[in-house]
């Protein structure tokens, strides 16, 4: 097993120089914050990145689309059911309105509804779940049973009644969507809090005398944020889809306002002679839902702490 060069070594090579312990205490990795690392992993995930870019394009379209178009969404131009061409990029509908403009106005409304519903879910759900999870015991029991009861009521029935009573519109739509939507967020938050509140760093903070508010602010929410964010990203497409679905049933935003759902609803009867009227809103619904799901999944993978050791 001996090495050939060993005999060539000089006695001077064997001078004792001692250890260099301080070198072993230096930290090898560059300092990366948690979110820095998450974004790095997210960018590496191709599907998530594509989703993210798609989303960005749709949002830019929603902001700029109606603005760069020479028509307004309610303007009737006299060209009925025109196929896509140089003037009307996405064609026109049976009232001669420019579909390109309407599709982006619809994007504004759909995305607004999606975000608004998600934010309401977030506020109610996180608060509800955090209080239930942290207090535990009877309070937890009662709060979660209330949530269970809410989900047990047939959702569609409630929404339809609500929309009939309140007259269809943007605001009732958002209320209808958040009525039970927050329950899922509350459950996720609660289970995260339950998991986290027995972590040793939370116990350590308690031994330092921290109160519940401090625990929530410093330890529980920052660490549950990942799961909450993922849930939120996945709530938005559900809300958008539900909006489209309700619109399709005729319960959507009233004319002449457009959402993707109402446009698809209007376009469906003309499928044979003017398929673009269904095609563009339909494709955008699909793309948006795909994009949000891809981003949500990507975020969940990027946040997975198991990859972090």
């Amino acid at each position: 097993m001996a090495d050939k060069n060993v005999s060539e070594l000089q006695p001077s090579d064997f001078e004792i120089v001692g250890n260099k312990t301080s070198e072993t205490e230096t930290l090898a990795r560059k300092s990366i914050s948690f979110w820095g690392e998450v974004s790095r992993r997210f960018i590496k995930n191709k599907l998530a990145l594509i989703g993210f870019i798609t989303l960005a394009i749709i949002i830019i379209g929603a902001i700029c689309g109606p603005w760069i178009s020479e028509f307004t969404y309610r303007q009737q131009n006299g060209d009925y059911n025109m196929a896509p061409n140089g003037t009307y990029w996405f064609g026109t509908d049976d009232l001669g309105r420019d579909i390109f403009t309407r599709v982006w106005i619809g994007a504004r409304i759909s995305i607004f509804i999606g975000f608004a519903a998600a934010i309401i879910d977030l506020i109610i759900g996180v608060a509800w779940g955090a209080v239930a999870g942290l207090t535990g015991g009877r309070t937890d029991e009662i709060m979660m049973r209330i949530a269970d009861i809410l989900t047990a009521i047939p959702y569609l029935l409630v929404v339809i009644i609500l929309l009939v009573v309140m007259q269809p519109g943007l605001f009732p739509m958002i209320i209808a969507l958040s009525l039970t939507g927050w329950v899922n967020m509350a459950r996720i938050t609660r289970s995260e809090i339950l998991k986290l509140k027995n972590q040793e760093y939370v116990l350590a903070a308690r031994t330092l005398g921290a109160n519940n508010l401090h625990l929530i602010k410093r330890h529980l929410l920052p660490n549950a944020l990942g799961a909450i964010l993922v849930t939120m990203t996945l709530t938005i497409p559900t809300a958008i889809f539900t909006e489209a679905f309700l619109s399709y049933l005729g319960l959507g935003v009233p004319a002449p306002l457009a959402s993707w759902g109402t446009m698809a609803n209007d376009g469906y009867p003309a499928l044979a002679n003017a398929p673009w009227r269904l095609f563009f809103p339909g494709v955008l619904i699909c793309l948006t839902i795909f994009a949000f799901n891809a981003v949500g999944d990507g975020l969940r993978d990027a946040l997975d702490p198991k990859l972090r050791k």
């Binding site: 064997f14 004792i16 120089v17 250890n19 072993t24």
Partner: peptide, 30 residues
């Protein structure tokens, strides 16, 4: 044993234990 084990992304050139060995010799680092 003072210090910590080396990072194996970039293992030390000589004896891996040299940096923690109080009686390390010159050759140990080479």
């Amino acid at each position: 044993i003072p210090g910590s084990p080396p990072n194996l992304v970039d293992p030390p050139r000589g004896d891996a234990f040299a940096a923690r060995n109080p009686r390390a010799m010159k050759i140990d680092f080479e």
